[in-house]
Design a binder for these strands. Structure first.
Lengths: 113, 113
DNA sequence: TACATATCTGCAAGTCTTTGTAGATATGCA
DNA sequence: TGCATATCTACAAAGACTTGCAGATATGTA
């Protein structure tokens, strides 16, 4: 029972880290391989400093790691399967969502699979 | 691309809702079937009013539903598979965690599977 | 009806998160 | 070295989340 409390706390921390729209898109963007910060910022349409802050959080939690390539920092998922696991949650979103969103979710699920 | 933003927002909301240690234990407690608020409070060792607040959030998001039985409110998971999906995230916790926690995680994974 | 039990809601205080801005650091090249 | 590019960090304001507490509601029973 106490270990359930402890493990639930760890799980909650992981989920909290993932529970941000930018970070979800970021992880799905990295699902196919590494990418540098500026390119990510352009693709996700976010200011680079903001992206850097998100990356800092994910890095601190060891969800992503960094590799230097010249002056670029290439980021990649330590556990690429996490992208799939997140996309799997679309099943639960689709159920609750109005039909319009459910359609979008299906499209995105294909993009993210 | 815009639907990705929209869907990522929905996903983030779902994850945020799940990203609380009490709510995670609550959902895992419900994985085998319905239960009333007081019993849940006793099992999770939480004040009933706090549990009720958590249940209110999950109810608003339609993750749980309620059935009246006398003066008790029986709660159950609308999509019981979500409990399994959360437990699957233990794989990602185990990797990052020190060995001690990894052991706990494995035990809990058995309890929650 | 009056009471006890079971659960819910509203509110306020404390805490944590997000985000823009400004400036710091690090790298490669002229 | 000096400059441009790429990224990071610090900080403060705004906002969101958590939690205890007090009181509200609803149900069954005497």
């Amino acid at each position: 029972m106490p270990q359930r409390v402890h493990v639930a706390r760890e799980l909650a921390e992981l989920l909290k880290l993932l529970a941000h729209p930018d970070r979800i898109r970021l992880i799905e963007e990295l699902r196919l391989g590494e990418c540098d910060v500026n390119t990510l910022a352009r693709r996700l349409n976010l200011p680079p400093s903001r992206l850097s802050q998100h990356l800092g959080l994910l890095r601190a939690a060891r969800l992503v790691e960094e590799r230097r390539h010249g002056r670029q920092h290439m980021y990649y998922l330590v556990q690429p399967q996490i992208a799939r696991w997140i996309a799997d949650a679309l099943a639960f979103v689709e159920v609750r969502a109005p039909a319009a969103l459910a359609g979008e979710a299906r499209e995105v699920r294909e993009l993210w699979s």
